[in-house]
Write a protein that binds this DNA or RNA. Structure first.
Lengths: 169, 169
DNA sequence: ACAAGATAGTCTGTGAAGCAGAACATCTAG
DNA sequence: CTAGATGTTCTGCTTCACAGACTATCTTGT
């Protein structure tokens, strides 16, 4: 209200709400992802389980569940389906016989690799309204937020561009 | 597979997945929002309905439903609750007697204003891992993605900083 | 002016999805 | 060796949102 010399943008407008934008983008992403991942057991979450299991650092069911933010009881039937499709295996953890290590089968790795590529394409289409550099910035900012990591040196606007050229697979 | 000379970053790691980051951040935001909005009928979505109805441009139930990405049948009981709490009113649309215009009551505007402020604080805490400028960049990028708008001139990294100083209410 | 189809809102049923809680096996600490 | 914590699975329940039908109104074509 005070007469500051300010463009009067964003006073309680929905499209200024972070929650609204997040929800909308997430929903849109989920939608495109579901098309790409329609055949995969568990859909988008099935993919995330594959990806989580693939990078090895987290591999027990509970660790994956926590990383993906799903209930542990959900992991059970998610993995049932993925295992049934021959994409992952539940191996006894040698260090802790209560736990199961989730490892990808050869088919699983192959499938993941393929999906990864197609997902990337779909995402780029989703991010079309942004400039290429901005897309990388967004990815990087979201990644850092999701991991809870603070900036490690340079600003994201620069960092993002350095990440660009990777091949996948 | 082919021996390209490439830094082997981000080969199918979960935390490189846009969907994963989006889901995680959205979930975190929803969680903090739910604390702030615990008393509000409809929770976070109740807030979004208030915000959508407040900016006037979209005001019929269906328009709001589409903007928020909820089913029209859900709007009915969402609005029932908000109306029951005396925060909004359903007024007949003079131009179309099928439609209802959703308008905020005085109490609704006041409530929205208060929630808006507290939500902002909570969000800033959520965005703590990012630098202040990066937070604005993220907000701006997400907003543009959500509205589907392409960049209108300057890059977001600059644009965001110009938006900063607004008062709300 | 009238009929036919589209659209806004509401209501009812149904199906799915996920969580709480218990059960079982195993680990860790005292 | 006991007591409590932790990983996984299973059962039951609640919740929630979607499909579909229904009414009222708008729109279009003839």
């Amino acid at each position: 209200m005070a007469g500051r010399l300010v463009v009067v943008t964003t006073p309680q407008r929905v499209d200024a709400d972070l929650g609204w934008a997040l929800g909308r983008v997430t929903r849109a992403h989920l939608h495109t992802a579901q098309e790409v991942l329609s055949g995969l057991p568990g859909g988008p979450r099935g993919y995330q389980v594959l990806a989580a299991a693939n990078d090895g650092e987290v591999s027990t069911q509970l660790a994956i569940a926590r990383m993906l933010g799903v209930d542990r009881t959900v992991m059970t039937y998610l993995l049932d389906e993925l295992e049934g499709a021959g994409l992952v295996e539940r191996r006894p953890d040698p260090a802790d016989r209560r736990a199961r290590r989730i490892v990808l089968t050869a088919a699983g790795r192959e499938r993941l690799c393929d999906l990864d590529r197609r997902l990337r394409e779909a995402e780029e289409q989703l991010l079309a309204p942004l400039l290429p550099a901005e897309r990388d910035t967004l990815r990087e900012l979201l990644r850092r937020l999701a991991t809870g990591a603070a900036q490690d040196g340079a600003s994201a606007c620069q960092v993002a561009e350095e990440i660009a050229a990777t091949d996948g697979c």
